[in-house]
Computed example of a mutant assay.
Amino acid sequence: MGWLAGEVALITGGGSGIGRAVALRYLAEGADVAIVGRSAEQLQDVVRAAGELGGRVLTVPGDVRSPDDMHRAVEATVGRFGKLDILVPNAGIWDYHRSLTRLTGKEFSEAFDEIFAINVKGYLLAVEAAWRELVATRGSIVMTLSNASFHTDGGGVLYTASKHACLGLLRQFAYELAPSVRVNGVAVGGMRTQLRGPQSLGLQDRTLAASFARNEASGVEQPPLIPLYDSSVEPADFTGPYVLLASRTDSGTVTGAVIPADGGIAVRGFRSPAGGAGL
């Protein structure tokens, strides 16, 4: 019996990265899991990775920017498993540290629309589609946030703004859905994933995993992203807080809270104290 035995979870962006890792961890903790993503191939890979637990996975191809797709995902989840207990709004893209001084106004306008549509509107639409079912089960929401939800230099201006916006969503959701639904988040740090950039900036084929590989191949010593202990930066290492916050037994009194899983950025800071020193 795991921490989430008998629970049903729906995870957006569940085909890769932290969403995939959380899906596999939730399965191991006893939950049935529905995963949403734009790549049917990636979703099926999660089923294969789940092995003998793959029969407890529902794949729902869809786009988090579409309210119809989000409602269809919730309906499919309830149709398959009979209820919905846990929602994990997670799908997102990164801006690869594109700063104010590197883009034109036109580029910012187009990238803003794309990043905020996925990172912010996608969370809002997922919660709008799911809240009725979560009220019925007195369930919970566990949002993927970021070190960039609290601190600078975890991305460029657009990503940082989008993740700050998600923190605001979390707090407002926690207020509006109390006392029926708990709403919490995990502010993750950098990790080796297939997280991509915005198509509007030509970064749709760039991934964090490739960036990690290039840095490692350079032979230049890189500052550790998780400096408090010897650790990999694999998504599976970040899943514990998602389990804790979803657990009715262990977090039943917790809402409106965020667990930072970012290597202690608040106490150590980033490595660049002045971003505009060269202007």
Rank of each mutant, 00 (worst) to 15 (best):
L24T: 04
Q204R: 09
A217R: 14
S162Y: 12
L225E: 14
G168A: 06
N90C: 10
M191Y: 04
A40E: 15
A277I: 14
R196T: 11
L158R: 04
T77N: 07
A213Y: 03
E110P: 00
V258G: 00
G92W: 00
V186H: 03
H151F: 15
S272L: 15
T160F: 01
A50F: 05
T207P: 05
R65M: 12
A21L: 08
T255R: 01
M70T: 10
H71Y: 01
F270K: 14
R196K: 13
L87A: 06
A91D: 01
I141L: 06
A126C: 12
Y96N: 10
D95T: 11
R72K: 11
S231G: 14
Q194G: 08
V46N: 11
Q204M: 09
E41S: 05
D85C: 10
R102E: 15
D250I: 03
H151T: 05
T160E: 14
T193P: 02
V46C: 07
I86E: 01
G30T: 13
D95Q: 10
R248P: 02
Y229T: 13
L87M: 06
L244M: 13
A9N: 12
R98S: 12
L43H: 06
F81Y: 10
D45L: 09
L245N: 04
E176L: 14
E234I: 08
G269R: 12
A111R: 03
K106Y: 02
A111Y: 03
Y159C: 03
V57I: 14
Y123E: 12
A178L: 05
L87G: 01
E75A: 15
G264C: 09
V183C: 09
G30F: 08
A213T: 12
K83I: 05
E52L: 07
G155R: 04
A5E: 15
G168W: 06
P179C: 07
R38W: 04
G79A: 10
G156R: 06
E221A: 13
V46R: 09
R196Y: 03
V142T: 09
I86Q: 01
L208A: 09
G252N: 02
T104C: 02
D69Y: 07
A274P: 00
E29H: 00
L169E: 03
I259N: 02
G2A: 11
F238K: 01
S272C: 10
A236N: 02
H151E: 13
V254E: 02
A126G: 14
V188F: 11
D32L: 08
A76D: 10
T193A: 01
L53I: 01
L43W: 06
P61Q: 11
E176N: 13
G156F: 05
L167I: 03
L279V: 13
I259D: 04
V22R: 00
D85T: 09
I265A: 06
D68C: 03
S162R: 08
F238R: 00
S66E: 07
V74A: 04
P179T: 06
N90R: 01
F108R: 12
G79H: 11
V127S: 00
R20T: 02
G92I: 04
F81N: 04
A21D: 06
L195Y: 04
A49S: 13
E128D: 15
G219L: 07
V220H: 06
A23V: 08
P198L: 05
I259T: 05
T207K: 05
T12E: 02
P273H: 11
